[in-house]
Design a binder for these strands. Structure first.
Length: 695
RNA sequence: GGCGGCGUAGCUCAGUUGGUUAGAGCACCGGCUUCAUAAGCCGGGGGUCACUGGUUCAAGUCCAGUCGCCGCUACCA
């Protein structure tokens, strides 16, 4: 047995934001991180998996305000939900903290101090619009107004989409806050910046030769950021802001992306404190003892935070740098982006209500190869693969042989198996190597190969015939079943990082709890065998359908105001999410309202605009000969053919607008937003006629 | 349109630094088996590796272009 030194490995997943529930997309990351951690522990290394809720920022503040409660109440509730979801999927953190904890405040201060003392913090005035009604500064995207150059209406605060002009939000003519509808005023606000350019040389070197990054990531960074001077990073926000106030800059708060990664440090610190360990032994540099490895698992959307800002902060603070930043892609379901309207936006909780979390863990493991490509959850394949691999091959191995050993136990010495156990034991090195690389897909393939060989062995030995031959074949029967059960347990060891539940059940069946990878290297003999209990159930089509249906229902519940009149059950309270996502506009007078002429119209023609991704070209009739051409952003949600003949509501006196594909002479009213991807057209009650005005 | 990614059997994917008749699982077809959660075993059909051109003794693998798809973004008035 080769000597393998005991490594010290700190592992993180990205901090989930306390503004929403965990869904199947999040789980791609947490499950793969958990598999990696369980693998390292099984190998006998000291490994800690730390994570935390990311709790600060404007979005949390606005949402809490809309729900009429404190931010801390909101994040406490979300934390409990997150923890329950993770536990359900057997994602086992060694410590789960919060960026709102004292440890994080302290460490933010320390990192800040280091940046300041190195002269990396500068103060600059930023001209920003302020919404006095909402009592907050407005980010560019929260301001709209008229372009100062071409007078186009309703442009965002940074650039004009009509003429391409760029300007400051304060330059807009008639600016409006999208939060309250109030007219914002220009205020000069002081912001604090980190002059990250001072670390440009370090970052170029680190991204290239530290070994922490995939070459593709290195190239991406070199091409997009490191090829020119790095811009100062704006790390403060003026009050009001839900976060930590900066100690030496009253009225200024650390921007959420400053304190979030420090949450990794804080969670480690809390974990260390609870175990009497030294924080410095993990994040310090050059301390005594085995140096720690630091592995960050992240999605491809937050690469530059983890590969530029974060190492820069660590470098400035004199802390250890990441050993590996492991980047993964996004989840698609049935080949497409998760969709609420298609029912493929599945919350962790919804899955747990209908399906075995272990099945998803296995499926993800079988598809994760350590690359940054997106991962597709094909539900048909999911069902076939889990049933075939886990139920048909692995579990079946125990299911078809354990019963013959209930009374006798395993053979007293391990019988001749033609070298099967030894072969699978030898494969253990390769399987471990690919686990280490994060190529779980390859590991699963190798393990299934062992399961195939084991089943072929059972088939060749035909123990069911031996069972019928009476006492003289009993010894042979016992041997064959002992081999099969040992091969099963060996596979359970290899799968233990992915399927901790199965490993536990395998231990219950024979041999006791599995603690070490080394248990795959030597067969068991002479031990009792417990009565066989079903280890895993087949996945039925109905369960999948139920998950989709429940996911669609969850969306309907959130986006249908007041529920429908056909709903006999007392409605559970509607979620405040849609409203929070788009707060009410400013009060308008009845005169203002009557300026808008809303009419019932009939769609008389609807056609695709092949080059447009979101637009359909509609011809609507207001009755008689009055028709209008309207481009509506509903492509993908409505089939053109199905729209023809249908009554809708249009804004009939809207100024015509020249769009890329033609002139649009009105607007079809539809509901959308709140993070939902659907677009819901409004229909009048039966009897309404085209041309009728809405009063 | 801009940026990024991808195009290998019906489906999901492997194919290591370019090197013998391109692989797996599922699905499908045929046979065997009946211990097992309609599970298992053996065999089979099926691919001009998107297309075109180039580099090379040799390309799925490198380069260029074309087409198609996906994601972010813009066109949601």
């Amino acid at each position: 047995m080769p000597f393998s030194p005991r490594r010290r490995i700190l592992v993180t997943s990205a901090l989930p934001y306390a503004n929403g529930h965990i869904h199947l997309g999040h789980l791609v990351e947490y499950i793969q991180t958990d598999v990696f951690v369980r693998f390292q522990k099984l190998r006998g290394h000291e490994c800690a998996y730390v994570c935390a809720d990311d709790t600060h920022g404007t979005a949390i503040m606005i949402r809490a305000r809309a729900e009429g409660r404190s931010e801390r109440e909101l994040i406490a509730e979300m934390r409990a939900a997150h923890l329950a979801d993770f536990a359900g999927f057997q994602v086992a953190f060694d410590h789960y903290g919060s960026t709102d904890n004292p440890a994080n405040r302290r460490l933010c201060g320390e990192v800040w101090q280091a940046l300041s003392s190195k002269g990396l913090v500068v103060t600059r005035d930023v001209q920003q619009l302020y919404d006095a009604t909402a009592g907050t500064f407005l980010a560019d995207r929260f301001v709209k107004g008229t372009c100062p150059r071409c007078r186009a209406a309703d442009q965002y605060g940074d650039t004009c989409e009509q003429c391409g002009a760029t300007y400051a939000p304060a330059d807009l003519v008639d600016p409006v806050s999208t939060l309250s509808g109030a007219r914002p005023e220009v205020r000069s606000a002081e912001h604090l910046f980190v002059t990250i350019e001072a670390l440009h040389g370090f970052l170029t070197e680190w991204t290239r030769s530290s070994g922490a990054l995939d070459p593709r990531i290195t190239n991406y960074l070199a091409g997009h950021f490191l090829g020119e001077a790095l811009r100062d990073w704006d790390v403060s926000r003026p009050a009001p802001y839900f976060g930590f106030e900066i100690p030496d800059a009253p009225g200024h708060y650390w921007y959420v992306w400053f304190d979030a990664p420090i949450g990794y440090l804080a969670a480690t610190a809390e974990w260390c404190e609870a175990r009497g360990q030294a924080f410095e032994s993990w994040w310090g540099r050059g301390s005594a003892g085995t140096p720690a490895e630091i592995h960050h698992f992240i999605g491809k959307d937050i690469v530059y935070f983890h590969t530029l800002f974060w190492p820069a902060m660590l470098e400035a603070a004199g802390l250890a740098l990441p050993t590996k930043v492991r980047v993964h892609g996004f989840l698609t379901v049935n080949g497409q982006k998760m969709s609420k309207s298609r029912g493929t936006f599945v919350l962790a909780r919804t899955w747990l209500d209908h399906l075995d979390p272990a099945a998803l863990r296995y499926y993800y493991a079988a598809k994760i190869s350590g690359g940054i490509d997106d991962l597709d959850l094909n539900l048909d394949e999911f069902m076939a693969k889990v049933n075939s691999d886990l139920v048909g091959k692995v579990v079946n191995l125990a299911s078809r042989t354990a019963r013959w050993l209930e009374s006798t136990g395993l053979s007293a010495s391990y019988p001749d198996d033609g070298g099967l156990f030894a072969q699978a034991a030898a494969d253990g090195g390769e399987i471990a190597a690919v686990y280490e690389e994060g190529d779980f897909a390859r590991a699963m393939r190798a393990i299934m190969l062992a399961a195939d060989r084991a089943n072929a062995y059972v088939d060749a030995e035909q123990p069911w015939k031996l069972a019928k031959q009476g006492p003289e074949a009993a010894g042979r029967l016992r041997d064959v079943a002992s081999v099969a059960l040992n091969l099963f347990r060996q596979i359970a060891v290899y799968l233990a990082p992915v399927l901790p539940g199965l490993a536990e059940q395998a231990g219950d069946l024979v041999g006791g709890p599995i603690h070490s990878w080394d248990e795959s290297q030597a067969p068991l003999a002479g031990l009792p065998v417990a009565p066989f209990k079903p280890l895993m159930k087949r996945i039925e089509r109905e369960q999948i359908d139920a998950v989709i249906a429940a996911s669609q229902a969850a969306v309907a519940e959130k986006t249908t105001p007041g529920g429908s009149s056909m709903d006999m059950t007392p409605t559970t309270a509607d979620s405040g999410e849609p409203l929070a996502a788009e707060p009410l506009a400013a009060t308008c007078s009845i005169d203002d309202f009557t300026k808008i002429d809303l009419r019932v119209a009939r769609i008389v023609a609807a056609e695709e605009v092949p080059e447009a991704k979101k637009l359909l070209k509609l011809t609507v009739s207001l009755g008689g000969d009055a028709t209008r051409t309207v481009f509506a952003g509903i492509k993908g949600f409505h089939e053109p053919a199905a729209l023809v003949g249908r009554l809708v509501v249009v804004v009939a006196n809207l100024a015509p607008r020249q769009m890329k594909f033609g002139l649009s002479e009105g607007m079809v009213v539809a509901a959308s937003g709140a993070g939902a991807t659907g677009v819901y057209l409004l229909s009048p009650d039966a009897g309404a006629l085209p041309g009728m005005r809405l009063h």
